[in-house]
Design a binder for these strands. Sequence first.
DNA 1: TATTAGCACTCTACACGGCAGAGTGCTAAT
DNA 2: ATTAGCACTCTGCCGTGTAGAGTGCTAATA
Lengths: 345, 345
Amino acid sequence: MQLNQRKQQVLEAVVEDHIISAEPVSSRTIARKYQLGVSPATIRNEMADLEEMGLIEQPHTSSGRIPSQQGYRYYVDRLMRRSELTEDEEGQIHTVFARQAHELALTVQHTIKLVTRLTDYLVFFSGPQLERSALQQVQLIALAPQRALMVIISETGWVESKLVDFSFPVTGEDLEQVAGVLNEHFRGLTFSQITRTVLSSIYQELSRQRLLVDYVLEVMESLNTSEHSDGLYLGGTRNVLKQPEYQDIQQVRKLLELVESEQTLREILSDANHEGITVRIGRENRQGQVQDCGVITAVYMLGGNIVGAMGLLGPVRMNYARASTVVECITQSLSAFLSSSGNCF
Amino acid sequence: MQLNQRKQQVLEAVVEDHIISAEPVSSRTIARKYQLGVSPATIRNEMADLEEMGLIEQPHTSSGRIPSQQGYRYYVDRLMRRSELTEDEEGQIHTVFARQAHELALTVQHTIKLVTRLTDYLVFFSGPQLERSALQQVQLIALAPQRALMVIISETGWVESKLVDFSFPVTGEDLEQVAGVLNEHFRGLTFSQITRTVLSSIYQELSRQRLLVDYVLEVMESLNTSEHSDGLYLGGTRNVLKQPEYQDIQQVRKLLELVESEQTLREILSDANHEGITVRIGRENRQGQVQDCGVITAVYMLGGNIVGAMGLLGPVRMNYARASTVVECITQSLSAFLSSSGNCF
DNA sequence: TATTAGCACTCTACACGGCAGAGTGCTAAT
DNA sequence: ATTAGCACTCTGCCGTGTAGAGTGCTAATA
């Protein structure tokens, strides 16, 4: 689809004005505010053409125009100019990541608060997913004769603890020995690399504790399933209510359903599996519940591997220019933070 | 305030009908549905008296009556009959707590889902507060020359992990020795009992690792402050939207603010510090943000100590009879669960 | 040929008024 | 002490009218 320059200017004006005002945009408004040097009548003609192409639409006869979802797409792909963050805003982002050596879970929570201030959309994060990150260490702590606590630490600084109940008594020595062998063999491997087949190699070494090893391996495998990857962090729900599209209680209910079930948000984040920013507008989303929303996602990395993702969700009429800048800046800072010397795991 | 029997019946009818219908209750409705054996006119006379006493009020001239906050209070104190749960509902509760030997955090999350199904209100829980529960074990796991992971396990089955950064290198042996001494001295003490003064007694024993001990103690103290007690679990936000009082977007915004900031909910739970159920109606709440809500709280116990609390929040017009039954049943089951043999820490 | 002024037309949002229905308060009768 | 009856009031709803915003079309203009 090729547009002459003036049509592009008109489309851009319609999109940007509607993003700000949430109202249909009239030809007069564009002529006055965007100084294209032509009269409203000319703009009306251009608008009629744009409407025919499916880039803008009229909510009802004789109203102004609003962008269609394809209109937003054209805008995002070809017209949008990245918006710059102010020095102050960049400063705030750097401050969050300046704190060396903190638990990642805390950092993620601070980041969410920050993004909540920087934009008016719903922010959500997946914590570093274990299956994608490498094992740093496993510890087994005896709690009772038939019970132990398994602590798993990933190289991304993620800590998971899991209670294990045995059907037979185990000694502290057994636990120590098993943990020792596990660490020796698996340190540095990603969790998806630690499969049953690899694991079988340690059976010989631990033939005496075979039953115990079985229990432990079961727990490690259960961590590997995405079902367990519990770390979904989110914030900014009440921000979204500022948007006029959420005046209707029905919309709000849909949004809260999204937030409470978390399932869809997880899905969105796991769809994000390549570097760079992804923008999905309305029906471009696979998930039915967000097909009247705009969604921006990006991943963050450690040592060349994707370890987690971030999402920003708002109405279709969201400020894509600003939102994508924020997402990009945050994920890049987070990746840099993870690779920094502070995280010397 | 003493009411004759018929006034009590009328008040009860007004409260219970309004709880169901959310509409002002007319004299005719009461005469028809609650069979007091008198005509609407008589009921109107009684209502005029009840209004004069401040127990019910008229939203506008010539409308039916709704209970005032004092009216609800009178109802809760003297008229309300505990509602029974069905066998099925009791069964659901027992099922959640039947699973032996699971992490408490998981159990709490299942409980929230359950209560969300049993009532239409906002449910929230504080996890067992460390300062109120006893230490089971501390472990220090070396991660890097100047960094360790401190894992703290309480007798309630709560696991906290905390990263510690040292300004000097420490050896695994040092860590092991310190953990050993800490466990020896403090196992079984509650966290509030582990104060600096008690701690000083171990300095002699660990004179060589004095600096290291200082670091560790600092972390343990930071766990003690309520600011850290991070475990607030909640659910059911979208349930509350079913209530007609939340048709107004303004109300919804206030509710979400409550949910997102969490501060007020924490406060409400820490106000609950005695056994039994507390019902606070509207302005009886200390917290301004919930003065148009009804709040029911109760604590749960382990070994005679209060270790956490649960809250249920809805509009002033909430079903106190049912809600308080649910709260009571859940907290009792949770207390029993914690004391059960399953938790043999 | 591209642009624009002008005008008729359409649609929305809001205010107004009338009306039915629900409910009360009061009075007088029982 | 209770109740029937009646006048009164308030809400919610529906239909109407109107102002304002915005378009589409046509004819004039550069």
